[in-house]
Design a binder for these strands. Structure first.
Length: 489
RNA sequence: GGCGCGUUCGUCUAGAGGCCCAGGACACCGCCCUCUCAAGGCGGAGAUCGCGGGUUCGAAUCCCGCACGCGCUACCA
């Protein structure tokens, strides 16, 4: 497989790209990079009615975010430009005409109404569906009349009515179809645009694509494509049909599954490298235990033999776990930089802007406590607030009351004022001693201090937190806590 | 309805005749660690390998049938 691998990702800009779409792009890209081949992006915008403005940008942005780069396609062009099908209309028309001349395709003037009727009738009588070839049998005279009337027409491909079409699928093995069961599909629409079938075959050939790796939903159309290749005298590429990704309801992933648009994951605080790692695991495994892998490792280990045949259900929980693993692997600086935009978005405006150096100190404290970058704001807010807000009763720990809490906080305050160092180790040593002198258990004493200093009952380790907050903030919060608890007595 | 593909713990998967009365991971439960929360460590529960027939000394792995699921069945991709 070493010679000339050329694969492509052919999105149609009809909506937000979701996990399933991009996963297909990912597999193609991995295959190309693994074999030192080329990865082409081609825009299949042949359905003028379903075009969604901005959809292509979203596709490219998704790829950018995941660092999936392409060698030819939009923005970079290449030897087979243009890479946008709507700019290649003449090519398809020309080929369609050639097929008509050759007698393997023909114009069809059937109206949508008639086609609908035909389908209804087929359903009623429970026949197999498909075009009934009415226009294949038109006489020259009838055809001329229709043309003279200006009747709109499409071009249909005349499928062979006998024999079988077979493919050795790279993932599924041998598959074959009886030609008589396949109908005469449209290759050129009445608006002059090709259908998907003509479009892919033409461009995959012209762009010298060696391997077509696409989702399994395309498997049923493969015999049509193969017949087209044959009629056109093109050598077909190799085919591999990837398993489909499904939602929790076991239906093909689509918009109605909620947050499936790939870029939504960026907004929610997933790291692109984690998402990529997770996506490749939907339908591919390296071995019986390795799951967390760098992109480089994935590239060097990726192979079609490792691709699963059955469809996979997208499990968000595992993705989230994996995101946590990747977050924990970041350096403090990296984490802070990734966190910055999220804090800027999620923190109350009054607390902004966030000081990066301060954040670099905070980051390690929440690193093993967040699973999403978007968890950070809620978990760090008290670092930025002037004074934390909380219910005074929270200061009172089990087995204590307000009267015994006050002297404890007071003692801590006094000692911290004098403390020669504000390093966490020194703080811990000092405060443990203070707690003992007060006859309080660490749970009680530290619990109360935690609330006083952060306003929370669950936070990163107390002394590290104090160190990062700094003496000023800690002292102010403690004295405020003393006032507050005093009012409860 | 027709055609095609698929079927191993809830989920992602390992497994290509004996290593498997099935391994790993997420989630779940328990214990440990511990100033809280996490993270981490250890352990547990969880799959009669869709069902039924074969083939074989031996089958999750090969063959046949069935069931179920999914996909396709558009002048959508």
């Amino acid at each position: 497989m070493a010679e000339n691998v050329r694969v492509r990702f052919a999105p149609s800009p009809t909506g937000e790209p979701h996990i399933g779409n991009i996963r297909t792009a990912l597999f193609n890209w991995l295959f190309a990079r693994r074999h030192g081949g080329e990865f082409v992006v081609r825009v299949e915008d042949t359905d003028q009615e379903r075009l969604v403005p901005g959809a292509l940008e979203a596709v490219l942005e998704s790829l950018d975010w995941l660092k999936i780069d392409w060698d030819e396609g939009p923005r970079v062009d290449g030897p087979h430009a243009p890479y946008v099908q709507s700019q290649r209309l003449d090519i398809y028309k020309d080929l369609a005409r050639k097929l008509v001349d050759k007698g393997v395709a023909y114009p069809c003037y059937c109206t949508r109404e008639r086609l609908d009727e035909m389908r209804k009738e087929q359903q009623r009588t429970r026949q197999g569906s498909g075009y009934d070839r009415r226009c294949l049998h038109l006489s020259d005279q009838e055809r001329r009349d229709l043309e003279a009337e200006g009747a709109p027409s499409v071009i249909r491909f005349a499928m062979p009515t006998s024999g079988v079409t077979e493919v050795e699928d790279l993932i599924r093995g041998h598959v074959e179809w009886r030609n008589e069961l396949l109908d005469d599909f449209v290759i050129l629409k009445s608006d002059g645009f090709p259908t998907y079938h003509l479009g892919v075959v033409t461009d995959d050939h012209l762009m010298e694509i060696s391997h077509v790796l696409r989702a399994e939903e395309w498997l049923p159309s493969t015999p049509r494509h193969l017949q087209l290749y044959q009629a056109l005298d093109f050598e077909p590429p190799k085919f591999g049909h990837l398993p489909i990704i499904m939602g929790p309801d076991r239906a093909k992933l689509s918009k109605r599954h909620g947050a499936t648009a790939l870029l939504d994951y960026r907004e929610e605080g997933y790291l692109p490298e984690a998402l990529l790692n997770f996506m490749v695991l939907l339908g591919w495994a390296l071995d019986d235990k390795t799951e967390v892998m760098s992109t480089d490792t994935i590239i060097s280990e990726f192979s079609l033999e490792g691709v699963t045949k059955s469809s996979a259900i997208f499990d968000r929980e595992k993705l989230t776990w994996m995101n946590g693993v990747y977050i924990r692997d970041l350096s403090a600086e990296e984490l802070a930089d990734r966190l910055l935009p999220f804090l800027g978005r999620d923190l109350p405006p009054g607390l902004l802007p966030v000081d990066r150096d301060y954040l670099v100190n905070i980051a390690p404290l929440i690193q093993e406590r967040i699973k999403l970058l978007s968890d950070a704001a809620g978990m760090t807010q008290y670092f930025f607030e002037d004074l934390p807000v909380y219910d005074p009763n929270m200061l009172v720990q089990r087995g204590m009351d307000a009267a015994s809490t006050h002297p404890a906080l007071q003692a801590a305050l006094e000692h911290l004022k004098e403390s020669p160092s504000f390093g966490h180790e020194h703080l811990e040593q000092t405060l443990r001693e203070v707690g003992q002198e007060l006859g309080l258990g660490p749970r009680q004493f530290f619990g109360s201090l935690r609330v006083a200093v952060t306003g929370r009952t669950a936070t990163p380790p107390l002394f590290e937190t104090m160190e990062v907050l700094g003496r000023d903030r800690v002292l102010r919060r403690l004295s405020r806590a003393c006032e507050v608890i005093n009012q409860l007595i």
